[in-house]
Design a protein around this nucleic acid. Structure first.
Lengths: 224, 224, 224, 224
DNA sequence: AATGAATGAGCATTCATTCAT
DNA sequence: AATGAATGAATGCTCATTCAT
């Protein structure tokens, strides 16, 4: 009896294609993730297929249409985010450290998500309808909420922002590919500073919860 | 009593067919600005024409292709920004007040600019080639530089950021149409807080001038 | 009391525009003739108007549509051809000399005609309906017939060709702009040789009258 | 018993999907050839596709644009001409018989070529750049040259014309779809008579080689 | 009556999606 | 089940023609 991971890796003679198909699927989602981020949500499906090393037909066998593919990319992205948050929560650092880790790690990840969601209003609706993705999203949002509240409890994040403010701020930020690394890092540092308890300005209005900024909250959503 | 020729030629300066056409042109640029921001750089030209209340043909008479239209939108946007900066400089408030005014006024304006520049590499090149637009861009960047430096001189902006950092930060911000006004205002306020001299964080690296982030510096979204 | 020519030139105070309008009309037809020949029957009307130094509106005032303009060009061309034939008939040379003169004179003229007629089946029908043009065409064809018959009578043109053959042969020849002058001259000389009584080959079938090759015979009709 | 992969890969050489696609391709080129000749170089692509019994998309999959299609038609035409010349050379008749065969066989063939090349200057440039087509063209021109020279050697073609004259003459001839067959045959016969050694006229200038009329010599219609 | 702006239908081309092999 | 060919709907752009000035 192995772990689940071990099971899926096992290549039973009668289902030899299983792992093959799974690998292909992964390749496709990865290629799509990359291309959505690099070239926007309108990349030709054929280009995605080519990047994944398969024919369009194969792509369409797995994902009935562009929306389904986008949903898969979104799901993968949400999974990565969820993991990031888990790591942040279970690490031994402060909540602030966790927040920093989450916000500075793997920026491109957020781009993918954003690009995908920029598909269209219709697409977004479709994405929301998927219960699996919905659960992930809620998980991520709850983790963000906890992290922010923990940071406020420890005094590192100012009291007049809410988790929704953080989510929204993130959603408004997009790094274009031409921005050099060090500059982007400074910009993120500035934004973190804005959240820090040492910031002394006064914000208009009251803190937003994630629910306040729309549900299911777009954790991040640059668009195109 | 003039000749017929004289009569038909006689038109109030600023009115007549000329002004009609000018009005339409303005409508087109405005509609394009809005739609580029709302729906991305690929909005069907027909939709832009419809939003402007003209036929496609009219749109194309003024702007030979999408790129030309984008250039016009960019120029209009730069002009608005230049005016904002002029107002900020000549107002009787502090430089900080000016900065706040510029950064919180008419957020959508920056959005348009970004969307437009997201057109394509080719488009960006074309836009840069236009001397008129280039001049405007330099003007805006100089004004931004002056404003930031004045604010630093009066002690309201932290010393470890440069005008380039501000420009870059702005270029990374994008407001999606679904984000409610008050939330966007809070987000901008947060970012201003980050720039304030009261912010206590430490930034990695050294301040950027606008030239540091590319020349002719893109005030905002570099491109795609 | 002047000649008719004198009358039309006279500029009565009350109709000062008359000669002006006529001049414009001539300019338009000339420009169209040139452009139809140079760029084919699809030249943009706007380009024709520009070449004639008028606005499109003016062009359309004179000629309700492209077909009407083409008809005018055709008519002008037919008039030139009719004059060529009159000259050939009333000259003191032989009929052969006349034939040579007609066939080698002003090649471009034929091009214009052909280009125009290449407009479309509908256009051709419309052109035929014009009685004025029809009369001219008949006149030209009769002159061609007489000239060929006279040449045969004097023994210079072979007996086994008919006027229809000549018309047809001409209609199949087109000089593209890139063919150099001397080469075109040699080609025409070859063709004349083919018609000459000294040619000894035997032709399949019997001589064609102009009526045999369709009425109203296209005197010449390269197309596009 | 092979693996499934082996089975699916196993197809009779020359058949299967490949041959299906090839057949379609041939249909398209044929339809285009016909329509370019009949309706000029501007026939709607959709009409060509319809005539070939395929959708536009299929047409565009094979030929990225109109120019590419025209190039294919030109190539096919050149191939037919090359074959005609081979037949003429290897037949047991005289060189004169060969010349007659080439010049009277399949007139429409030349028409297509001409129509296609009439596309535009840009198209012509593109066509010339293709090495395959260039080779064919040279082959055809060489064959023409040999045939004419052989005919002159046997005394059947007049000495004062060169292969270039023949090529040029052909390039100037265009049969319009409305010209009846028998009339066209008579016209070609006339032209052949002009080339015959029995023709007694004198040509201005000296014989042209194919190189004299431009290189790589256009066998036929120079272009537009 | 001249002008050139406005309109919209038409055609080229692209690409999502389906389907035969 | 994988492939890539076929389809046709969507969209950019052009130009004939109409109309306001």
């Amino acid at each position: 009896m192995e772990t689940t991971a071990g099971m899926t890796d096992a290549r039973c003679p009668g289902s030899g294609l299983r792992s093959d198909a799974a690998r292909r699927r992964r390749q496709i989602v990865e290629a799509a993730s990359q291309l959505f981020a690099d070239e926007g949500p309108d990349v030709p499906m054929e280009r995605i297929a080519a990047a994944a090393g398969v024919g369009v037909g194969t792509l369409y066998r797995r994902f009935p249409d562009r929306i389904a593919l986008a949903a898969a990319v979104t799901e993968a992205t949400l999974e990565e985010m969820a993991e990031l948050f888990r790591d942040a929560a279970h690490g031994q650092g402060t909540a602030w450290d966790g927040l920093v880790a989450v916000l500075t790690h793997r920026t491109p990840l957020r781009l993918s998500l954003g690009s995908v969601q920029a598909l269209s209003a219709g697409a977004t609706v479709a994405l929301r309808a998927d219960p699996r993705r919905r659960r992930l999203q809620v998980e991520v949002l709850e983790a963000l909420t906890e992290l922010v509240q923990a940071a406020q409890a420890e005094g590192s994040v100012r009291q007049d922002v809410g988790p929704g403010d953080v989510a929204l701020l993130l959603s408004m930020i997009r790094r274009r590919p031409t921005v050099p690394d060090d500059a982007a890092v400074r910009a993120m540092a500035l934004i973190l500073d804005a959240l820090s308890a040492r910031a002394a300005g006064t914000l208009p209005g009251a803190p937003f919860s994630v629910a306040d900024v729309g549900f299911p909250v777009r954790v991040d959503v640059p668009d195109d």
